[in-house]
């Protein structure tokens, strides 16, 4: 663990949307992240790859302060959104999460709600909503998640009646409806078949015009396809963080090379 990661942040034009500055995280006494440094640019897709249990979910969950909801979870270091410390005392994690949305590994639409209500859930949960605007928001969010055409005639159907891939896009629509600036995706395709996966990948390409996206994935081809920058995490250390092209074609670290060539993991 004493290894110093040679993850010099790549040069960028734009200032970072999300800054990760010497972040360490623990579950109880078990340290799962060590001194992570990353700069995530605005309207870029950043992929996090690494073997199972290396701390990808923990890292992404610390970005919107979901990490602290787990029992015994602790974090040190600094995470900034637009330069402002998100762990500062006066930051309400609830307000932060409205700016930094999240999509989970398993599609988790609210089972008691229709497709439409699922999309509106975030707005309904957190503030009152006038119905005139609701229709507009639903359509826009579902369009944004490339789901509108498939569900426009069954908005009143239960969210769970959709296929797995549709459910996942419904969850994306639900995140988009609250108009976040950043979208965190923790293995959004791992429960989906190849067709549904490629739809989501296309969607990520479209969303990137508006949102800053961080995506965790087990699938290296996927990281290569969708992301601008890739971070390789190994047992809690950020081994390498660079432009996706570069990381996959000429990795600087032997461990990265071993991983992407399938020697382990």
């Amino acid at each position: 663990m004493a290894m110093i990661s040679n993850s010099t942040p790549p040069p960028r034009q734009s200032p970072a949307k999300l800054g990760v500055d010497r972040v360490s995280a623990w579950f109880g006494t078990h340290q799962v992240l060590q001194d992570i440094d990353m700069q995530i640019g605005e309207r870029e897709v950043t992929a996090i790859i690494g073997p199972s249990g290396c701390g990808k979910s923990t890292l992404i969950r610390s970005l919107n302060r979901m990490h602290e909801l787990s029992e015994g979870a602790r974090i040190a270091g600094k995470i900034t959104l637009d330069g402002a410390d998100v762990y500062a005392r006066d930051v309400d994690p609830v307000m932060l999460r409205r700016r930094v949305g999240m999509v989970f590994q398993k599609p988790n639409p609210f089972p008691s709600m229709s497709v439409r209500d699922n999309v509106l859930a975030g707005l309904r949960l957190t503030r009152s909503l006038d119905n005139a605007r609701a229709d507009e928001i639903v359509e826009k969010a579902l369009h944004g998640a490339a789901l509108w055409e498939e569900v426009k005639d069954r908005l009143a159907a239960p969210g769970l009646s959709l296929s797995g891939g549709q459910q996942q896009r419904l969850c994306i629509a639900r995140s988009l409806a609250v108009a976040p600036e950043v979208l965190l995706m923790d293995e959004p395709c791992s429960a989906l078949d190849p067709v549904a996966t490629s739809r989501i990948e296309d969607l990520i390409h479209e969303l990137k015009a508006t949102y800053t996206i961080v995506i965790v994935t087990h699938n290296m081809q996927q990281a290569a396809r969708v992301s601008d920058y890739t971070a390789f995490l190994l047992s809690g250390d950020l081994v390498e963080f660079s432009e996706t092209n570069r990381l996959f074609t000429s990795p600087r670290d032997q461990r990265t090379e071993d991983y992407i060539t399938g020697k382990f993991g």
Binding site: R97, R98, F104, N108, L125
Partner: peptide, 14 residues
């Protein structure tokens, strides 16, 4: 399921 609580929290619910 915990996943439903997380979905709500991630949407900015208290």
């Amino acid at each position: 399921p915990m996943s439903l609580r997380e979905a709500a929290y991630a949407l900015g619910a208290t």
